[in-house]
Design a protein around this nucleic acid. Sequence first.
DNA 1: GTCAATCAGATTGTTGACAATATGACACAA
DNA 2: TTGTGTCATATTGTCAACAATCTGATTGAC
Lengths: 244, 244
Amino acid sequence: MRKSRPRQSAAVPHTMTAVQAPAPAPLTLSLPEQIAAQISARITSGAYAPGQRIMEQAIAAEFAVSRGPVREALRLIEKDGLVTILARRGAQVTNLTIPEVKEIFDIRAALNGLRDRGIAEDPERHRLLPLLEAEVAGLARLARDSKRGDDYVEAVFRLNRLLTAGSRSVRLRTILGALAQQTLRYSRLGLSTEQRRRQSVRHWQELMKAIRDGDGERAQRVAERRVLDSRDAAIKKLREFAES
Amino acid sequence: MRKSRPRQSAAVPHTMTAVQAPAPAPLTLSLPEQIAAQISARITSGAYAPGQRIMEQAIAAEFAVSRGPVREALRLIEKDGLVTILARRGAQVTNLTIPEVKEIFDIRAALNGLRDRGIAEDPERHRLLPLLEAEVAGLARLARDSKRGDDYVEAVFRLNRLLTAGSRSVRLRTILGALAQQTLRYSRLGLSTEQRRRQSVRHWQELMKAIRDGDGERAQRVAERRVLDSRDAAIKKLREFAES
DNA sequence: GTCAATCAGATTGTTGACAATATGACACAA
DNA sequence: TTGTGTCATATTGTCAACAATCTGATTGAC
C-alpha cells in the first residue's frame, strides 16, 4: 500500500442500474488459454486416460513456457471438470463414477430445459431458427443413413452447442459448456444403437416445433426428457461395461 | 522430460468401475484458500463495493505473501462469481445487472428443485430431518417475532446451506454454493416485508412435509416455486431502487 | 475548445530459483 | 512373508524480479 490512492471505484453505488459491457472477448487467446485448449483436447480425445496424472513441469517443457501459465491452464481445465486438482499432488484426468455420470446428466436435464425454454420464449429466436432447422434436418438424414453413430453424435453436439451459445444467460452458457465437455464421452455411449438415434431425432423435432411455436413450457419438458433418456441409455451401457 | 518414465496410470482403463475416494478434504486451508476466504467475506459483507478493483499487489502486501497465492485466491473467488477477472486488467468485484440477478435465481430454482427432490428421495434422509425440522421451526418463530428481517434471512441461509450440504451430488453442492453466495445480497431484498416472510415460511413447511413423505416430485415443485417467488420479490425491489 | 498522439506510471503476465511436501523404494525387524 | 521406518527423489508451492500491457494525463495541432 502506498499513499492514499484515489480509489476510482469506491463511488460506484450498490444498486444494479449500470449495465456493464458484455465481456470484451479478446480475439487472441491468452497463453494459459492456449495451453488449456490443447490439454482439454487431449483429454476429450482420450489421448490422456482417466486417472492419469498431468505434471506441470512436463507440460511446461513441452510448450516451452514456465510453470506459471501451465498452472493457470490446469486451473482453467479444472473449471470444466476435465481434471481434478489435489493439494500438493497436482492434476489428474477426472475419472467419473457411474453415480457421478448420472448426476451430471440430471443437472444437464434441468439446465437444458431452462436454456431451451429461454430460447423458445425469446422474441429474437427467429434469427437462430434457420440454423437449428438445418442442423435438425441433417440429424434426421444421419439417423437414417449413417452406419456408425459417430457422425450423429457429432451433429448432436453441434446442435447443443448452437443452442447453448444462443442462450441469453452467461451463467447457463458457462455451466452447460463445462457439463457438455464432461459428458461428451458418455453421450456417445447413449446414442450407440439405431433405435436410440431414431428416438433422439423425434425428440429434437419435437423440440424444434415447440421453439417455433414459442411454447416455452413444452420446450422445457421435451428438452428434459431428451437428456434423461440419453442419461438412462448411457448408464445402461456403463453398467454393462462395469459387469464385464 | 527425463528418461521414459513408467507412467503409473496409463494402465487405468477407460471404464467407470473404480470408485475413487471422495476427496480427502484437508483440515488445513491452503494459503490461497485462506486469502480467498478473507476477500470473499469482505465482498459479501459489502466492505468491497461492486465494481471496485482488487489489486494483487495490495492484497499481497496486506497478507505479507507474494503475488502468486493472491493470484490463485482471486481465481478461486472468480469461480464463485464474486469477482470478475479481465485479461490484463485484473479482478473487480462483480456488479450484477437486473437480468443477471434474474438468471441466477432461475438457475437456483431449477437446481434447488433437483437438490430437494434428491433429498426427499434419499433413503437416508431421516438423519438430516431433525436438523431441518428444528431450523424450520425456528424460522416460523422468527417470522412471527422478529422486527427486522435480518435474523430471518440468516436462518433461511443456514437452512439452504444445510440442504445443499445434504445433497449427494458434488456438482450440485459446488454450483449451488457459488450461486447462493452471489444471491445472498438479493435474497435479503426479497424477504424484507413481513408478508413475504410469512409466505416463505409456508413454503418451507410445505417442503418439509414433502421431504418427510418422501414425495420427490412435490418437493421439487415447492422448491422451485419458493425460489421463483423470492426472485420476483427481489427483482421488484431492485426495479424500485433503479427508478429512484 | 476539441481531439489525437505521446508518454510516464501503475498493474498484470511470465520467468527461474528455492522451499516445502509427498511418493515410492529399500532396509530391517518381527 | 509382512509390516514399519528411513531416505532419496520427484513434484507442487512460494517467492522476487523482469517483461508486456494498460491507464490516465499532458501536450500540441487544428
